[in-house]
Design a binder for these strands. Structure first.
Length: 918
RNA sequence: GCCCGGAUGGUGGAAUGGUAGACACGAAGGACUUAAAAUCCUUUGGCUUCACGGCUGUGCGGGUUCAAGUCCCGCUUCGGGUACCA
């Protein structure tokens, strides 16, 4: 019997399906383990070979944990709402639901071929009403809650209303968009409309006029993490700033908890670092600068309170409300001109063009500490959205202020002893203060502290922590997303009743904005409540559906709740989450926020959703090239190309094997090459190669189906792991896959050769036991450390050694098969049966190594001279230092190497090495 | 600019401070075969030597150590993230 991977894999995939091998239920007799993959967006292109990398890694871990006796939850689903399906719908008129379903079917077919142990009964699709009902439901909860800054948690908005009724805005500890002041009497006298408007200022899901990232090409606003360098991440379209009334989530309220929570989870340092930077906590001081001859204060935020004596001007963001106040009649036209100009600039222009620009407002402010009079400027290097939208400029010690001061000829005062500010500012937070009144002689650190105390004491400021993290804009002017459970009455938003959920996405005639410029839902017939109120026209963004999906897997068909208490308390949180690093500032922030919110409401029992997280590296493409001789249809092999003038041309990597071109296939690949001629080397056409992005246009996309067809799923799984460390980016190179396939064939040949079953019941020798147990030890260690590439080599070494011993003993091979099962489940299942077992190998107990078999009777000692190894000595284990030294020094080789030189020192490390210093 | 990763043969990559290059691909040679595929065996960092062996070698320059790919300092370079965040 040959290793017939096609028959074996089909057989076991069918068997697993029929026997519901991967069905998971709550089982209180077993410890749980939750392994999750970041679910894919089902694109039209299907899976390429890079996608399954993380899925295979998590699959191995799931199977390993199951064999260790855990009850493993390992689900899969689809992040099915999104822009590409909608863009496709605009082009073709096909309903995105149709194309999405088709893409999902294709994904499923591809996934099934790889032999994953997903419990498909738990599959979710974010675009299904049964699923997005809970996304809408969560949104309603966010609307009806506010964030109490004292308690640091979400509380019902009704409690805030109670507070307003009794005390007005006094002593309110609620995270808000802007600080409001009103008395209880005023509150009670407000109209319903006024009250509702005020409450929006506090709700966790709120509607507000915001400066947003507007992407005209996509016809929608985008969140900060969906924009990079002034263009949209999806599609690369320009993004501009625009004020619009939008739904937002008060993520910033959770900034502190999002930051602190990082210390409690097992994520890579680099990912935590990225999140820390994104959250951007900075501790500083807020200070009031009085506008000269007025009673108006300008609030500024600074982390360098110590530099207060070096402030030579102030800058307001162009959008600041104080711009009007500060602008004098003489400067009015110049200021207006500047504001017009900044308004017209897109975010991209602003970022690309770092010229120093700004305008003097005409006003002066008074430094509250030194009493100095300083000019107030307006410039767009100060951002309205951060801090107070105004700064005190210290050109001596801030490079942006320095550039500004130089450009407009404003004074620069050095504040640190010995610093040179003639060419550039001194930004480092170190040194001894000078020119700074009562701060002179202090270190920067001491001075910051002292200034803070001083301003608090004098009532000119307060200590303040600022976060960079912004609230998440939650509206998209698009069709293919979750409808908001919102209707409007007199221009104010209200939630539809929870009993009305899900609010199902309506049909539209076209997936484009209306003539009036409303979002596509404006085209839907009767998009109103039963009472006739207009429903919200925007839909939710991509991250809405992915923010709590891990909870839904725990209890996917529950109609009463997002997740039942029982299911949540059993499965708790994700123990291992594997996915790409590109979600560091989007999904992984939003779902942590969402989970914390649900935690505050007592709906989930764990505050952090993902206990351990691993980022699999990106699989890059490896392109192949052929070299066409200029103006001909003749192609020259790689190593001969320098003799001609050639043009490199991308060639489909699927017609190249080990860099050798299949010239016949090449002729058929494209009619243009039908008559191609080749100049060969050694009878072969060798292609050049380069590592590039995996994409259709580079002809380097490799489809997992093709690999499965040619080598089988087990080979694909092993090979993806064998490529290199999981977390490292690496090019996909099919060269080398033969080695992994050969390994499986060789393993098979320990059982069957030339049609003969070799498997026997003979007693294993000590050597054979040592090989097995050494492998068990190594594999267990490697799996726990996610070092799957070295596991695969360990399996190869094991099989090679057993092969050379001609070992076909069941006592050795059966545990080996169980050990291999997480990596190559199909062949393992088949061989397990050949060993005479009945159940599935998935439930076979994972082997544990026995140290007794690993004891070495002799040790190979390298003997080195001045650290250079010259020869080795094979000596019995258990010799002590003195014995080892004596033997080594007496050895002929030692005498020869020393050649009479005196010995200075001998280092002996028992079990390791002997080093002779001379 | 800042932050985080990398850099080891022709290639992918191994190596708790202790024999650098495990394992695999590729290449070369050989066995089997009418032939090919498959399989098996041998060699394979570079230089040098008939050979034993020697020299050299983990991006570059220093250092610590009996011993450095591994630790420390200073660079070079390639990826990734982030960017007027005061």
């Amino acid at each position: 019997m040959e290793y017939n991977f096609r028959a074996i894999e089909q057989k076991w995939q069918a068997w697993w399906r029929e026997n519901k091998t991967y069905k998971t239920e709550i089982d209180n007799t077993k410890p749980k383990f939750y392994v999750l993959d970041m679910f894919p967006y089902p694109s039209g292109a299907g899976l390429h070979v890079g996608h399954p990398l993380g899925y295979i890694a998590s699959d191995i871990y799931s199977r390993f944990k199951r064999q260790q006796g855990f009850n493993v939850l390992h689900p899969m689903g689809y992040d099915a709402f999104g822009l590409p399906a909608e863009q496709y719908a605009i082009q073709t008129g096909q309903h995105p639901a149709v194309t999405t379903a088709r893409n999902i079917a294709r994904y499923r077919e591809q996934l099934d071929k790889i032999g994953f142990c997903y419990d498909w009964d738990r599959e979710i699709r974010t675009c299904e009403p049964d699923y997005y009902k809970w996304t809408q439901w969560a949104f309603i909860q966010m609307f009806t809650h506010f964030f109490d800054t004292q308690a640091q948690k979400a509380l019902p908005i009704s409690e805030l209303v109670k507070h307003f009724e009794l005390k007005g805005s006094e002593d309110v500890a609620a995270h808000c968009t802007e600080v409001l002041n009103f008395t209880a009497d005023e509150w009670n006298a407000f109209s319903e409309k006024e009250q509702q408007e005020i409450l929006l200022n506090y709700r966790i899901a709120y509607l507000a006029d915001l400066k947003v990232n507007w992407c005209p090409a996509l016809g929608t606003v985008l969140a900060n993490d969906e924009v990079s360098e002034g263009v949209s991440i999806r599609g690369g379209h320009p993004v501009e700033q625009k004020v619009m009334r939008q739904w937002s989530l008060r993520v910033s309220a959770y900034a502190n908890r999002l930051l602190n929570g990082l210390d409690t989870i097992d994520w890579t340092e680099s990912l935590k670092e990225t999140q820390k930077n994104w959250i951007g906590r900075s501790e500083g001081a807020e200070m009031k600068f009085r506008l000269k001859d007025t009673n108006i204060d300008i609030d500024i935020f600074t982390t360098r309170a110590d530099t207060i004596y070096g402030v030579t001007f102030m800058v307001l963001a162009p959008e600041s409300e104080l711009v009007k106040t500060c602008t004098t009649p003489e400067q009015a036209s110049a200021v207006e001109e500047y504001l017009d100009w900044t308004k017209k600039r897109t975010e991209r222009e602003r970022q690309a063009d770092r010229r120093v620009t700004g305008v003097f407002s005409g006003s002066y402010a008074i430094n509250p500490v030194s009493g100095t009079e300083i000019p107030v400027w307006i410039a767009d290097y100060v951002l309205a959205g951060y801090g107070t939208g105004a700064i005190m400029a210290v050109p001596g010690h801030d490079s942006r202020d320095y550039a500004f001061a130089r450009h407009f000829n404003l004074p620069i005062i050095p504040l640190i002893e010995g610093c040179d500010v003639s060419e550039e500012s001194f930004d480092a937070k170190e040194g001894i203060l000078m020119n700074s009144g009562f701060l002179n002689g202090l270190t920067v650190k001491e001075a910051i502290q002292k200034t803070k105390e001083y301003i608090v004491e004098k009532g000119i400021g307060q200590v303040k922590v600022n976060f960079r993290l912004r609230d998440a804009i939650f509206s998209r002017q698009r069709y293919w997303g979750e409808p908001f459970p919102v209707y409007y009455k007199e221009g104010l938003p209200y939630m539809i009743d929870e009993s009305q959920l899900p609010l199902v996405l309506p049909e539209v005639d076209k997936y484009l904005p209306t003539e009036k410029g409303e979002p596509p839902l404006g085209r839907a017939d009767n998009w109103r409540t039963d009472e006739g109120y207009q429903l919200e026209l925007s839909t939710m963004p991509g991250f809405a559906g992915s923010s709590a999906y891990y909870l839904r897997y725990m209890d996917p068909s529950n109609n009463e709740a997002l997740v039942s208490k029982v299911a949540n308390e059993y499965w708790r949180s994700v123990d291992l989450y594997i996915g790409g690093t590109e979600h560091a500032t989007g999904h992984l922030i939003y779902s942590r926020f969402w989970n914390k919110f649900l935690f505050d409401l007592g709906l989930v029992c764990e505050e952090e959703p993902f206990r351990k997280l691993i980022n699999q590296g990106m699989i890059q493409g490896r392109s192949n090239f052929v070299y066409r001789i200029k103006d001909t249809n003749t192609f020259v092999s790689l190593n001969l190309k320098d003799q001609y003038e050639t043009t490199p041309i991308h060639v489909d990597v699927n017609i190249v094997h080990n860099d050798q071109l299949d010239t016949e296939k090449f002729r058929n690949w494209n009619p243009e090459y039908k008559t191609a001629e080749f100049i060969l080397e050694d009878g072969k056409y060798i292609c050049g190669w380069a590592v590039e992005k995996m994409s259709k246009s580079m002809f380097n996309v490799v489809n997992p189906d093709d690999i499965v067809e040619r080598y089988g799923a087990d080979t694909l799984r092993l090979y993806e792991m064998f490529l290199g460390p999981l977390e490292q980016s690496k090019p996909w190179d099919t060269n080398g896959i033969d080695g992994v396939h050969r390994f499986l064939k060789r393993l098979w040949s320990l059982f069957y050769r030339d049609g003969q079953l070799l498997l026997n019941n003979e007693e294993p020798t000590a050597d054979e036991l040592k090989i097995l147990h050494k492998t068990i030890k190594k594999i267990n260690f490697d799996i726990e450390n996610f070092s799957y590439n070295t596991s695969v080599s360990a399996f190869m070494i094991c099989v090679n050694e057993l092969y050379s011993l001609k070992c076909s003993k069941k006592a050795i091979l059966e545990p080996l098969v169980v050990l291999l099962a997480p990596f190559a489940p199909h062949i393992a299942e088949e061989l397990y049966r050949i060993c005479g077992k009945n159940g599935t190998v998935c439930d076979a107990t994972y082997p544990v190594h026995n140290e007794e078999y690993l004891v070495e009777s002799s040790i190979n000692y390298p003997v080195s001279f001045n650290g250079k190894v010259r020869f080795t000595l094979t000596l019995p284990a258990g010799l002590n230092k003195e014995e080892l030294e004596k033997i080594a020094l007496q050895d002929d080789n030692t005498i020869r190497h020393l050649n009479g030189a005196p010995i200075k020192k001998v280092i002996v490390v028992p079990g390791k090495i002997v080093n002779i210093v001379h």
